[in-house]
Every structure is written in C-alpha cells, then in structure tokens.
C-alpha cells in the first residue's frame, strides 16, 4: 500500500518520501502500543503520536492522504459508532471558516471502509441556529447529497446532564448531547485557524460545538462566563475517546476564527491525543503552544515537543508564520 501511494504536491513543497512514511509508521506502531489502551482511549503514558501530512488541495488525492493518516495511526474502528464533528461556523463556501466538506467526506468514507458500524456527522454551531442551512451554504450537500440522513444537529438533540470532576472552569455540570456521549469514537475534524480570544482554534476548541445551543443559546455564552480556556480543557477531559484531524490545507490567519484571511498551509495534522495535535498545529502556525492557555491547562508536559512523537513529515520545514490576531504578539514562537 505504501509503495502505491500517489503523492500530489505543490511545486514548492518537497514530497513526502517513502522513507519518512515507513519510519513514521514503524515509530508510530511502537508508540501506539505504549500510549493507548486497546480500545483507542488515551492511556496517559509514553509519547503521543502526531502525524503531519502534506495536502496541497481538496482534490482527488485527499482520500489517499486520509487513508494514510488512518493507516499510520492504526485506527481500528471496526464495529464502532463514530461521530465526526466538523467545524461549521458561518454561511460561506469560500472563506476558510468551516472544515472543508471534501475533508469530511474523505474521513467519513475511510471510516466506513474500515468497518465502522455507524458514522454520523454532527455539529452544533455557536452563532447560527439553522445548522443544516449553514452546512448547505458551506457546500456540504455537494459532497453529501443526503447529508440530513447522517447529520445530527447537536444544538437540538437529546441531552444528559454530566457532572464534572475537578473542572478547570466554574462549571460544575454541563448538559451534553446523547449522540456524542454514546459514541465509541469522536473524530474532531477541525480547521487550522487563529482565534481572537484564545490564540488558536484547533481540535480542542472544536468541542465547543458539542454544547447544545437549545439550552445555552447562540453564542454559548455560559462557556465564556465560565472561562473559555478552562472550558476547552474541561470538554477535552470529558471525551477520552477521540481522534483529531485538523484541516490545514487552507487555514485562517489574523483576526480568526471568522474575520481573518486565508492562509494556504497545505497540511493535514492528526493524532489520538488532541493536546499533542493542537500543540503541533501551533508550531506549524508559528505559535508557541506553551503560551496557549487551554493547552497549558489541559496538557502540562504533553505540550512539549519532546513528549510528541512526530511522524510522517517533520513540522519545521512546513511551518508557516500565521499572522496573529490583534494584540496577541506574545504568542509568537521565538
């Protein structure tokens, strides 16, 4: 499979070599056994494996890239109920605000090809109430003509009260959708963007979309009052069975997550530990992850480069210096 892998890359990006891929797979094979329990949950020991893959565009080559990601991370989804959570924010098919539907489609198809029992796409946008209309405007129906048959609006679904154990935020309990509480694997399918309040919005911040708007409103202001970085850390802790994929093919820099500018980064970043994935994304954006508060709160030593097993491509040659949100120069990596 590795030798047949077609690699389509832009002219200024050196290709992913078979050597990188093979060594990455070998290293990851060892790391996965150390880091994760048999069902894919985080075991909290050993280095966290994060893959960085070159992905120049949303064209036909994307499916193979996603396949390679899942192969690298030895993701076993056979018989599992999987929820894929994209980042849907605004009515736009052009601005790099939402997770691109081509990425969602490639991930869903790969999960199904690997034997997942059920794959749902689920999202609860924080600003707009008409979620499926928002998905339509973002081009999702062009890729999933019957999206509604597998889509769950997390803002409007059945909920259960969850008591938080040792929360970082002021929240002591939170209502969460049964769709995500009952799944075997949550795939956080985020977008590589800067964020004007927390610096960067990636796989972990993407979980804000799990919080039901029908209870907390649009925006989900409860999370703001309880502390945004703290709530990101709390939500992360509530979902130990995650796999994170960040769509960094077209990212957003500057005044993100909505008003920023498009930044062509040409990468897909993935891993089982959202903290390690987000820390790597920050490095790719020229942001110092140790200065992102929610990563500090949730990650501690897991943010450090030494604690992350980097596979596929090394991140340094792929780093892009994203323009930072106004007033956030302190986040810039040295």
């Amino acid at each position: 499979m590795i030798s047949r892998r077609p690699v389509v890359l832009g002219p200024d990006i050196p290709p992913l070599t078979r050597r990188y891929f093979f060594l990455g797979a070998l290293a990851l094979s060892t790391a996965c056994r150390q880091t994760f329990s048999h069902d894919g949950t985080r075991a909290g020991r050993g280095p966290s494996a994060v893959s960085v893959m070159r992905a120049p565009d949303y064209g036909p080559g994307l499916s193979q890239i996603v396949r390679d990601i899942f192969t690298l991370h030895r993701l076993d989804v056979r018989g599992k109920r999987v929820v894929v959570k994209p980042n849907l924010v605004e009515f736009s098919a052009d601005a790099p605000i939402n997770t691109h539907p081509a990425v969602v489609k490639a991930v869903v198809e790969e999960l199904e090809a690997r034997g997942a029992a059920r794959v749902l796409v689920a999202e609860g946008p924080g600003h707009r109430r008409a979620t499926l209309d928002l998905a339509a405007a973002a081009g999702y129906f062009d890729f999933f003509p019957n999206l509604e048959s597998r889509f769950v609006d997390l803002n409007l679904g059945d909920v259960t009260r969850v008591v938080m154990v040792s929360p970082q935020s002021h929240l002591r309990e939170i209502y969460l959708p049964n769709t995500v509480l009952g799944c075997d694997l949550l795939v956080s399918l985020a977008k590589l963007k800067t964020h004007h309040w927390v610096g960067a919005t990636l796989a972990m911040k993407n979980l804000f979309g799990l919080v039901p708007g029908a209870i907390y409103g649009w925006p989900k202001n409860v999370l703001h009052w309880a502390g945004i970085p703290e709530c990101i850390a709390d939500l992360h802790n509530l979902f130990p069975r995650q796999f994170s994929v960040v769509d960094g093919i077209e990212g957003m820099e500057g005044d993100g997550p909505i008003l920023g500018q498009k930044k062509l980064a040409g990468v897909m970043v993935a891993g089982r530990d959202p903290i390690s994935v987000d820390a790597t994304c920050c490095r790719l954006m020229g942001i110092e992850p140790e200065r992102i508060k929610y990563l500090q709160l949730a990650g501690g030593s897991r943010i450090a480069e030494a604690s992350i097993l980097q596979v596929a491509e090394p991140w340094r040659p792929l780093r892009q210096w994203f323009a930072l949100p106004p007033g956030m120069d302190r986040l810039r990596a040295d």
Partner: peptide, 13 residues
C-alpha cells in the same frame, strides 16, 4: 435578556 441565567444579554432572547 440572557439565553441562560448568569450570562450576558443577547438579541434573540
């Protein structure tokens, strides 16, 4: 009016 008690006021509520 707030969406949820203990939070800020917004247009829709």
């Amino acid at each position: 009016a707030a969406w949820y008690p203990g939070t800020a006021a917004w247009v829709a509520p």
